[in-house]
C-alpha cells in the first residue's frame, strides 16, 4: 500500500471517526409551584376551583401532592383538590404547598377578595426582553389574553434584534436555558419595532414564565425575558 492509499484510508477513517458527541448544558432551574388561575375577587356563596402547576428543576410539569389552605377558614374554605367556597365578605390569602421530588419545599400564595361578583383582572403579563449573548436583543413584551380566549404576544416599539443570525426563533418556556419543552411560537421575521404574534387558545396566560429567543439551527441562546407574576 503506497503512501497515497494509506493517506486516503486514513482520511476517510478519520472523517467517519469524528462522531457526534455530547454537549452538556446547565439547564437547572429552581422548582416552582404556582397557582395558575388566581382571581382578584370571588363572589360570596359560590364555589371556585383553584389550580396549581408544579414545574420541576428543569422546568417540566410534574404531578406532586398538594396541600391547599386559606388564611381565614371563616371567610373561605378550600378542600385538598383546590375547591374553594366563599363564605363571608373579606380578604383572604389562598395558599398551596408541596414537596418537590428533589426534596425542596415549594409553595405559592395569592390574595383574593370575597365580594359580590367573581372578577379576574389578570389579562396580561409583561416582560422585558434582553440579550444574554453578544447579539442585539432588547425590548418590552406583553402577553395578553384577548376576547375569544386566545393570547397575543406583542413586542413594543423599542424592540430590536440582530439581523445577523439565521434561524432566530421565539419561544415560550419555563426553562430559559433550553428549548426542550418550550412552546415554539415561530421564526422571527421582524427585527425592530412593534409587532404581534397570535397564539392558539391552547396556550394559557400562566402556562409559561419566560420568553426565549434562540438561534434554532445553531442552538445558540440569544436572550430572554421573564414575565412578571
Amino acid at each position: 500500500m503506497n503512501i497515497f492509499s494509506r493517506a486516503i484510508l486514513w482520511a476517510i477513517v478519520w472523517s467517519f471517526l469524528s462522531c457526534i458527541g455530547d454537549d452538556i448544558i446547565d439547564d437547572r432551574v429552581d422548582p416552582v409551584l404556582r397557582i395558575t388561575n388566581a382571581i382578584d375577587t370571588m363572589e360570596i356563596n359560590t364555589n371556585y376551583t383553584f389550580e396549581a402547576l408544579f414545574l420541576n428543576h428543569v422546568g417540566k410539569e410534574e404531578v406532586i401532592t398538594l396541600e391547599w389552605n386559606t388564611s381565614d377558614p371563616d371567610l373561605m374554605r378550600i378542600d385538598p383538590d383546590g375547591n374553594a367556597t366563599a363564605l363571608a365578605v373579606g380578604v383572604v390569602r389562598i395558599g398551596v404547598k408541596g414537596i418537590a421530588p428533589s426534596g425542596e419545599a415549594v409553595q405559592d400564595e395569592v390574595p383574593c377578595v370575597i365580594g359580590n361578583s367573581t372578577v379576574n383582572n389578570l389579562k396580561e403579563r409583561k416582560a422585558i426582553v434582553k440579550t444574554t449573548s453578544s447579539y442585539l436583543l432588547e425590548g418590552d413584551a406583553v402577553l395578553q389574553e384577548m376576547e375569544g380566549g386566545f393570547l397575543k404576544l406583542s413586542l413594543a416599539e423599542n424592540y430590536k434584534a440582530s439581523t445577523a443570525l439565521p434561524g432566530l426563533y421565539v419561544y415560550l418556556t419555563n426553562n430559559p436555558n433550553t428549548t426542550a419543552g418550550a412552546y415554539e411560537i415561530g421564526a422571527v421575521s421582524v427585527f425592530s419595532g412593534a409587532h404581534d404574534y397570535e397564539l392558539p387558545s391552547e396556550v394559557k396566560l400562566t402556562d409559561y414564565d419566560y420568553l426565549l429567543y434562540y438561534c434554532k439551527p445553531f442552538n445558540v441562546k440569544v436572550g430572554d425575558g421573564k414575565f412578571e407574576d
Binding site: 469524528s18 457526534i20 452538556i24 446547565d26 437547572r28 426542550a180
Partner: peptide, 15 residues
C-alpha cells in the same frame, strides 16, 4: 456534524 445537547441536570437527550 453537530453534537447532541444533553441536560446537565437529568442526563436526558434534549436535542
Amino acid at each position: 456534524y453537530v453534537n447532541n445537547v444533553v441536560s446537565g441536570t437529568t442526563g436526558d437527550l434534549l436535542i
